[in-house]
Write a protein that binds this DNA or RNA. Sequence first.
DNA 1: ATAGTCAGCTTAATCGTTTAAGCAAAGAAG
DNA 2: CTTCTTTGCTTAAACGATTAAGCTGACTAT
Lengths: 346, 346
Amino acid sequence: MSAKRTSLKDIAQEAGVSTALVSYVLNGKEKESRVGPEIATKIRAIAIALNYQPNHVAKSLRSGKTQTIGLIIADISNPFFANIARIVEDEAKRNGYTVIIGSSDENADKSRDLLNVLINRQVDGFIIVSAEDSAQQVQLLKEKNIPFVLLDRYFPDMQTDFVSTDHYRAAYDGASHLITNGYRRIGMIAYKSAMFHMQERIRGYQDALKDGGLPFQKGYLKKIRFTHIEQEAKVAIDELTKTDKPVDALIFATYGLAINGLIYLNEQKLNVPDDVAIVSFGQAEAFDLYYCPITYLKQPIDLLGQTSVSLLVKKLKESPDEPAQILMNAELVARNSSKPKRIHQH
Amino acid sequence: MSAKRTSLKDIAQEAGVSTALVSYVLNGKEKESRVGPEIATKIRAIAIALNYQPNHVAKSLRSGKTQTIGLIIADISNPFFANIARIVEDEAKRNGYTVIIGSSDENADKSRDLLNVLINRQVDGFIIVSAEDSAQQVQLLKEKNIPFVLLDRYFPDMQTDFVSTDHYRAAYDGASHLITNGYRRIGMIAYKSAMFHMQERIRGYQDALKDGGLPFQKGYLKKIRFTHIEQEAKVAIDELTKTDKPVDALIFATYGLAINGLIYLNEQKLNVPDDVAIVSFGQAEAFDLYYCPITYLKQPIDLLGQTSVSLLVKKLKESPDEPAQILMNAELVARNSSKPKRIHQH
DNA sequence: ATAGTCAGCTTAATCGTTTAAGCAAAGAAG
DNA sequence: CTTCTTTGCTTAAACGATTAAGCTGACTAT
């Protein structure tokens, strides 16, 4: 049996004083509370001798604050989110907070469950990468006055704090880059989703084409279901490549789409970039390791994570009334997968 | 301002009874506590009407149980751990537990900090992928009678619960596979580490060579520092390949080593598997996406994660005295990176 | 001498639950 | 008509911390 943890009471007993005094001393409130210097020293010594560690649960009950942040993401096993999670974890720790991570699988029901569980656990606030159809949940948080910051995705018609990449501009940059490098039949594979960030990526792609003098071809934009990536990605790529006017470049709107797509391109012996140039969202070792390193839109993950935490922490401390809305730019990292097109036969 | 959460007291007041009764009813203890059926029904109705959500913090304080598991891993942004984390998260949730994840960066000090923070947060138990030099910390947990299960790595001379891959056998299988496929100069790049799992991987490699009739060459085993992977991996590969007796196959003892190594092999225009065949530990999309899909030792991640959780949960409930020690086998997934050697000139 | 001030403590309420113990009324048993 | 049992509830302590309010004795000022 492990000896019971030492509590304020134990220290108080040992020092022959009340717990109140001990609490004052150990919280550095000796001045305001007029604690005698000798007894203060004695209390501190005993606390160290007994290896006192404050009971966080008791503190939380009393204060109503758990010093805990809930982080809701789509899936921790996706490298983008795993990286975000790591940054958030570190930054939160620096601020004295602990993080509880939950994966929503882009699913509104799971997301709701997670929020409820974490609300019952009395997390002080949330950082949320919102899932499809979760606008109402976010609205509810707002109404309940539960502090939160949206990360990476936001709802344009809702007044909330958020930290996000400028998805429109990222996609626009990606497509423009392909145009600059000589590609003319540029396709995009995206998710079938009403979420704003996905819409923005699509809009960016379309606008870049337009501004580049390329007519937008409906058939070059494929929207596939998140729940059926593997099958539908293949179909989409077949439809984009096995026609008389095949695409010469392809933008993957997410990391997951890219992985599935690239594997299928390999299977089909389609060469990157000679048959199809590639630009992708997301980022992971897989892109470096591909035989032809993949050009990608590098989101400022560190900054996104850090900013979201510091914003939330600030909100928890000061509860400012003006929501902070921060957009950051993705950086296009040009690699061989989108190098200037050369004319070739094969 | 959000209306205050409803507490037992609120329900009690509304129903005109004491909080004790409400507690009994809402915890399904009406029978044992002889609560009248009408009042029970009434209490339940009011609880629903007021949307009562129990305060988890208060419960925890009273019961001494937080229904929380601490998961200590090396780094959540490493896909192996991210996958583990996801499994653990899901499995824990099924058992009514919440998970707090902490990244130790394979660093004993950080690991100690994390443990302390989480102990103060009163987690009920730990699942730990132990870091270098953390044996003493684990010993301390044992002495303090804090329940934990070691995951993926364990200490052979310490009696603890653990769930791990049989690293020896995995490495043995990997090396044997290369021998079977005709490779004769098989190198290994491992971490310079005293950790048992790494020693076992090295031992498995050596024994397989011996049993395959190949003399173990000291120069073919490279140990590099975790803190300097990038530089030292390059040096190691140079030393293994740029000699008169270059290796014809290479085993990477971890995912991180493989990523760095493969990128460098690319840079050096060394072809897989014609110049060097590859077998690696770890697992991730990157291996599928490589121009020559990488043969890897697939650890039973799902089973590892699930078993560690159920073991811990069992321990928390029943505290059995016999530690459970479970070894699982990795599966060799053979791909082109280690296909039967063909004699060639280039 | 007497009130007032202040240093240095203690008391006790509080956060929201759980639960052992107790109490009162009604019914059963003798 | 007692006594015992059972039913249906309440009381209050406890978990470990925080903190407003109060108390005591010493010192100061008048």
